[in-house]
């Protein structure tokens, strides 16, 4: 096993990112745009999707494990466990919340649902939150002004960026900014360090000797 996966980690830090937000705001499209430089009209995500992307930011090699959750109501219960899943496991939990500038209700749901969810389920105090306004290519259909986005971000203490998965405007920047912020946060950095990474099937449980202490 060592020989198969024991190679020195090819990255300095591993960060886990979670994507949440209403259905159809373009979470998956943004992720696809980021990981594959492609844009498609995607059908709604089923449950949860997972992608890995290696990037170099600020001179550090990073592995980003990105969880893309379904926005549809019927999968809503799932999302909560993915915030939670990060606890103690993943090194930097970061949440990017989306609203769609063409649909007003996705903006109102931000404070009604998503911001609350983060507070409720996130197990990492310092986790970086980022608000991303997608679909700026449809400038004419804008229903949420940039100022509203900025104000919201200020109120909830998160980063803010506007982008378009379709034209790839600001897509790279969105993730880069987020990651830079994580790199500036010591507690998140410590958790994401490659040295902490472990493999259950490689390590022997330390308390294995307990099984010998039988009564006889």
């Amino acid at each position: 096993m060592e020989s198969l996966s024991g190679a020195p980690p090819e990255f300095d830090y591993l960060f886990k990112l979670l994507m949440i937000g209403d259905s159809g705001v373009g979470k998956s499209s943004l992720l696809l745009s980021f990981t594959s430089d492609a844009f498609e009209e995607l059908s709604p995500t089923i449950g949860v999707d997972f992608k890995v992307k290696h990037v170099t930011v600020g001179g550090k090699k990073l592995k980003l494990a990105i969880w893309d959750t379904a926005g549809q109501e019927r999968f809503r219960t799932l999302t909560s466990s993915y915030y939670r899943g990060a606890q103690g496991v993943i090194m930097g939990l970061v949440v990017s919340a989306f609203y769609d500038v063409t649909r007003r209700d996705t903006f109102t749901n931000l404070s009604d649902i998503w911001a609350k969810e983060i507070d409720l389920y996130s197990t990492n105090q310092d986790c970086i939150k980022m608000l991303v306004g997608n679909k700026v290519d449809k400038e004419s259909e804008r229903v949420v002004s940039k100022k509203e986005g900025i104000d919201f971000a200020r109120e909830y203490g998160c980063l803010f960026i506007e982008c378009s998965a379709k034209t790839r405007v600001n897509v790279e920047q969105c993730f880069e900014e987020l990651v830079l912020k994580i790199l500036e946060t010591p507690s998140l950095l410590a958790e994401g360090s490659a040295g902490v990474k472990k493999n259950i099937f490689r390590q022997k449980p330390p308390e294995s000797d307990a099984s010998t202490s039988s009564c006889c």
Binding site: I46, G47, V48, D49, F50, W67, R74, L78, S81
Partner: peptide, 26 residues
Amino acid sequence: SRAWGGLEETAAMSPAKHHVGAFLRI
């Protein structure tokens, strides 16, 4: 098949019980 990757990763994510609970709720 688009959902397979996410499921595989979820399966390997721990602790399982929180996910199990969530999927049961579904």
